[in-house]
Structure formats: C-alpha cells, structure tokens
C-alpha cells in the first residue's frame, strides 16, 4: 500500500509556451466534445420506451394469494396461528405481524384478524380470518425488512414505482388493492423471482434480458454475460 504524489508539478506538467500560444488545451477539449456529436443518443424516451426494473427491485408491496406454490410448512403455520385454512385464490396472510415487528416504522401497518361467525358445530369454529391489512406507503422507506421477515412469502415487493396520487389518503392501500397488485405482478414476472416452491433463489439473474432500453443506458455497448447466464430459470 504505497503513496502516490499528485500535484501541478508532480504528475501534471504545466503548459509549455507553444501550448499557450496555439491554444492546444482548448483544441483538445473541443475535439473531445465534437466527437460526441456523432454518437448515438443514450437517453430513453420515457414514457414511450420503458426500462424494466431488475428482478430484485423493491417497488410497491403486494400480498400474495394461495396458488399451490407455498412452502411445506405453510399448513403448520396456519394451524399454529388458528387461521381458517385458505383455499386457492384467498390470501396467504396469517396475521402473525412479523412484518410490523421487523419494520423500522411500525405505524405503517394496521393488521387485524377477526373470529369467524359460525355456529358451534361448524368445523371452522374458533378460527380467525384476516380482516384488515392497511399499509400507509407515505411513511414507508422501501427497505425490504418486512419481506425478509414474512414466514409464508406473502408480502412481496413488486416492480411498480409510480404511486402518485392527489391526496395522502391515496397512499393507503388496503387488502384488496394489495392482493390485486401481487396477482398482477406474479402473472407478469413471477418466474424471474420465485421458483416452484416460492423460494427466493440467491442465484437470481442480475437483470432480465428482455430489455433493449437498458442497452441505451450502457452507451449502446451492453455487457456480454457469461456462458451460464442463459440457462438460469
């Protein structure tokens, strides 16, 4: 670990007389700039061209529904927290409030579960169902700690990044809106993020490779990936 000395008379030579008279420093700078006139444009023409976010992007949250890809211990969790066993299409949330415990700003979440109103001899007597799940995204930091805490991979990050509304009330998403967002996202891009067991594989791809607008950001010279990039699922 050495030391390198820099300075006007150390590694930069001052201008010689010829350079001063013939404005060579200006000429070199001007030449560099004019070369860029003939290169292709690197800006993306939003909203006509859109760069798709990476698979790990942390956008607006969503609540996943039961669709056959839960983990093996999902039923154990449901039984432990006395939740009515959900059918296909109903939400996976078991009202364990781990996400609220992990969050640095717990006032975002309002989670309530209520007991089912069934007679005594019904098999689902005494079990609860999720009643209210509100998230106030105006206070959220999008740090991702809640998604890493959820035991059933219910709350996820989607790739939506524009959530502008006219009032602050519009940032408060309830259970139905969150489920809708997650359904949308899984239908579009679920395969990039999760495998058949809803696992979050560590060997995800860096970006999805269906993206031509991203090549523009790389100065029209996008990087070439290694040989085993293509056959990741």
């Amino acid at each position: 670990m050495g030391i390198k000395k820099v300075g006007l008379n150390r590694n930069i030579k001052p201008q010689s007389l010829a350079e001063k008279i013939f404005f060579l420093d200006f000429m070199k700078g001007l030449k560099t700039t004019i070369k860029h006139l003939f290169r292709k444009v690197i800006t993306v023409d939003f909203p006509y061209e859109v760069v798709e976010p990476a698979p790990r992007f942390r956008g607006v949250h969503g609540l996943r529904n039961v669709d056959g890809t839960e983990k093996d211990d999902f039923n154990a969790w449901v039984k432990k927290l006395k939740i009515k066993p959900p059918e296909k299409g109903e939400t996976r949330c078991i009202a364990c409030k781990f996400c609220q415990a992990a969050c640095p700003v717990p006032e975002i979440f309002v989670i309530k579960a209520k007991k089912l109103d069934v007679p005594k001899d019904h098999p689902h007597h005494g079990l609860k169902v999720l009643d209210q799940f509100d998230m106030d995204l105006g206070k959220c930091m999008f740090c991702g700690l809640c998604t890493l805490a959820c035991p059933t991979v219910c709350i996820i990050h989607t790739d939506i990044y524009d959530i502008s509304t006219y009032t602050r009330r519009g940032w408060i998403l309830n259970k139905e809106q969150l489920s809708q967002i997650a359904d949308d996202f899984i239908a579009r891009r679920g395969k990039e993020k999760y495998d058949e067991k809803s696992e979050w594989p560590d060997y995800q791809k860096l970006w999805n490779d269906t993206d031509t607008a991203r090549a523009k950001a790389w100065d029209n010279n996008p990087p070439q990936f290694g040989p085993n990039y293509v056959d990741q699922n």
């Binding site: 004019i34 860029h36 006139l37 444009v41 690197i42 800006t43 023409d45």
Partner: peptide, 9 residues
C-alpha cells in the same frame, strides 16, 4: 446541437 454533444436528443 447542445443536446447531441451531450448525447441526448
């Protein structure tokens, strides 16, 4: 001109 020097349209 300024745009294309800066690689934007």
């Amino acid at each position: 001109f300024a745009g294309h020097i800066q690689q934007r349209p």
